Simulated scan of single mutants.
Amino acid sequence: MESFLVSTSIVGLAEIGDKTQLLSLVLAARFRKPVPIVLGVLVATLINHAGSGALGAWLASVIHPHVMNWAVVASFALMAVWILIPDKLDEAEAVTTKHSMGVFGTTALTFFLAEMGDKTQIVTIALAARFHEFFGVVLGTTLGMMLANVPVIYLGHRFADRLPTKAVHVLAAIIFVVLGGLALRTALYPDAHPMF
């Protein structure tokens, strides 16, 4: 349950102002059909995060726990810095043509590709490696993505313009620093009971 709650909150905050949230806004403005867009985002996120969660769980099983602890510390520290750098949607990612795939297919494919190498994908790998848990992390990161993107899809510019994006990013960075500190404690004292 802890992995689910941590994953949901981290990704929900990390997604605010992220390029995939901007992509959700573009898709909503272009197609004006929220249900297939939401379903496309859900499917793309589940597939992407399932792969990321599986990679993180696998890494945790093949890398020595001491090395993994230090890798998790480093990943949380890097994420704390990366989250403060604002994302911009590339022109190639913003191009969303309907073609024969329809709104759902276009959304799923575009969102899946935009999520590759994105902050939330990296976080999913790190969280699955840290918690040694696949389902709780993948369900949590997927819920976090949906909590951040569904309001944007339904409310568009009015909602996105009112979010204090910088404050949310600072809060997310602080959470990453705290998680990194807890992971550092585990790395320094591996025999002590982990705090998360």
Rank of each mutant, 00 (worst) to 15 (best):
T97F: 07
T45F: 05
A28K: 00
F111P: 01
I125H: 09
S9H: 00
P194Q: 12
V67R: 11
F4C: 09
T8N: 01
I125L: 14
N69V: 00
L5H: 04
A108H: 02
A94Y: 01
L46N: 04
V137E: 10
P194F: 03
A187N: 06
V152N: 04
W58Y: 15
G17Y: 13
M79C: 11
K88S: 09
S52A: 15
K88A: 11
A128Q: 11
V150I: 15
G51I: 13
G12Y: 06
E15S: 12
F135D: 01
L84W: 03
F111T: 02
H193D: 13
V41M: 09
V81G: 01
A54M: 08
H157L: 02
E133F: 03
L46C: 13
R30Q: 11
V35W: 10
P86A: 12
I175Q: 09
F31D: 04
V38Q: 07
R185D: 09
I10N: 03
A57C: 02
A60P: 00
R162G: 08
A192L: 14
V11D: 02
R130N: 12
M146E: 03
M101Y: 12
V81K: 10
G51D: 10
A74M: 07
I85Q: 11
G105W: 07
F111K: 01
E115C: 08
A173M: 02
L139A: 15
L184P: 03
H99P: 00
V11E: 11
V35L: 14
A114K: 00
L163Q: 13
T107A: 12
S24H: 04
T107M: 10
I16W: 14
I153M: 08
S100A: 15
S100F: 13
V138D: 07
V67T: 15
V67Q: 11
I122R: 01
V41Y: 01
A28D: 08
G144P: 08
H157E: 02
V123A: 13
D90G: 03
G12F: 10
T165C: 00
G117F: 09
G56T: 05
L127I: 01
L89Q: 03
F131C: 05
P36D: 11
A74D: 01
L184C: 01
P190D: 06
V26T: 12
L42P: 03
G102P: 02
V73E: 02
M195R: 12
A14F: 11
T20W: 11
V11G: 09
A108G: 09
G117W: 06
M195I: 14
R32A: 15
F131G: 05
A50T: 15
W58R: 05
R185W: 08
K98I: 10
A44I: 12
G102W: 09
I16Y: 12
I83K: 00
L127D: 10
R158H: 13
S61A: 15
L89W: 08
K119T: 07
G180S: 06
N149D: 10
D90H: 12
W70R: 02
L55V: 12
L23A: 08
G144K: 05
F76I: 02
H157Y: 08
V103K: 08
V95T: 10
